[in-house]
Structure formats: C-alpha cells, structure tokens
C-alpha cells in the first residue's frame, strides 16, 4: 500500500539531491541521513514534499534521524498516518 509513497519519495530525492545518479543505486534501504544524502535542510524539504503530496502532517518529534534514514522508514511512517483510508475512499466512491 505504501509503494506509491516509496516511488514518489525516491523520485523526489533523485531529482533534488542526487541529480544524474543511476536510479538503481538508490534502494529502499539506502541510508539517507547517515549516508550523507540528506542534510537537515534537505530532510526538511522531503518533509514538506510528503506533507503536500500525501496530505499528511508530521509532528516535529517524528522528523528524526531514524524515521528519515531510508525510503523504507519514511514509507512506514507515512503508512501510520494513512490508516486504511484507501479502502474506505474506494467503497464510498
């Protein structure tokens, strides 16, 4: 269910912070903060991007080194913000 998040975040990071990189090099588990890809300002940009794209809000304490250190972790965090709203939206449509 979080594949759309993973894809969008991956594309955003590639275009913003890794221009020219082979997309295959950036996996779901590539260390982003501890690997020097995202600094504090870059992390902030990722937060703003996700909040806008997926209509979620992060609490300040959630934006930490752990939650944002991989695409996997980011998707997991976003997943906790969007509980089953997919299915409900579909059935009511």
């Amino acid at each position: 269910m979080s594949d759309d998040v993973k894809t969008a975040v991956k594309e955003f990071i590639l275009s913003e912070f890794l221009p020219g990189e082979d997309p295959a090099e950036l996996t779901d588990s590539t260390p982003l903060i501890s690997g020097g890809i995202l600094d504090s300002i870059a992390t902030l940009k990722v937060v703003l991007f996700i909040e806008e794209q997926f209509n979620v809000t992060f609490e300040a304490h959630e934006v930490d080194r752990e939650n944002f250190d991989s695409i996997e972790n980011i998707a997991r965090l976003v997943g906790t913000k969007r509980p089953q709203d997919h299915d409900q939206a579909r059935s009511s449509a």
Partner: peptide, 21 residues
C-alpha cells in the same frame, strides 16, 4: 556512484563539508 561518494565523505568529513555535487 554518487551515493557511494556521499557515504565515503561522511566517513571522513563532518557533514557540513560533504560536497553538494
């Protein structure tokens, strides 16, 4: 790869010295 270079730099330099590009 770019990712490899960034990772390598963080092992040898403080974060604020890692090149942007």
């Amino acid at each position: 790869s770019l990712i490899e270079m960034k990772r390598f730099c963080t092992e040898h330099l403080p974060l604020y010295m890692v090149p942007d590009r």
